[in-house]
Amino acid sequence: MTAQSPVRGRGLVRRGFQHRPGAMVWVSLVIVAAALVAAIIGPLLVPGATDQHLLTGITPPGPGHPLGTDQLGRDVLQLLVAGARTAVLGALVVALGSLVLGNMIGVPAGYFGGWRDGLAMRWADLMFSLPALLVAIVVTGVLGGGFVLAVLVLVVLFSPGDARLARAAVLDQRHRPYVEAARLLDLSASRIMSRHVWPNVMPVVTANAFLNFAFALVALASLSFLGLGVEPGSPDWGRTLADNRSQLLANPWAALAPAIAIVTTAVAVTIVGDWVHERLEARGRAR
């Protein structure tokens, strides 16, 4: 821009309407909270959930089993509660891990620019040219599967997205006068990044962590569905779905219930993420 003075008098002319948290957001918050509770203390609530009752076998919903049993005779509802741990906690670890790794790479890249930036962005470009799920399938498959490996692979594959986002947000802040004023006070680069820049970048990257949470939930469920994430017989949602998908006629709920659990949790997390993003952005605009 070559403008001499910033364009004037557009405060109210510019601002649009704002959203309020609606019923959907409340419902979603409850779902996310329930999923997290189940993930943390679920196995304690339903201690015998994974015990097999092969004689019972697969049964449709009936007394004692509101959602019926699966082909190993396990109560589907109890399985859902027990399966939240791998499904939800794994995704949470992926979202947080990728947030930390991505920001550790992206924030300095954006702040310093130069070779650090070039290197980080080439790395991100490379990672971006491959879809995360595909790499996860190949790597966990060939290397022998395992839940921890799947989570680690997803952290590494999700982090370039966070890195790019953080870098772009930092670039946007880097030349603002408040950052330059901090430089003129001879503050160290790490202090400027952590105390001045990051708090202003935080809303964007936090909102993205929610989206990553939802995507990781889906990706991990997909891996277990393909038999790559967790051991066979695990109560994990994706695995239960895969194990029972050929039994749609005997007890559809054995496969549908975990499918619905995955979809509702992912949708709820996305809605909460959108809402957080809007809230934080509105707060940023009001500043």
Partner: peptide, 29 residues
């Protein structure tokens, strides 16, 4: 040698109070 910038709306860190901004400057100086 110090500087005063142009745009009053981005010259201060929006998340910090006036006191925090000035205290930091005093300490740094």
């Amino acid at each position: 040698v110090q500087m005063v910038f142009q745009d009053p709306y981005s010259t201060l860190n929006p998340v910090r109070t006036v006191g925090a901004t000035l205290r930091e400057a005093l300490v740094a100086m």
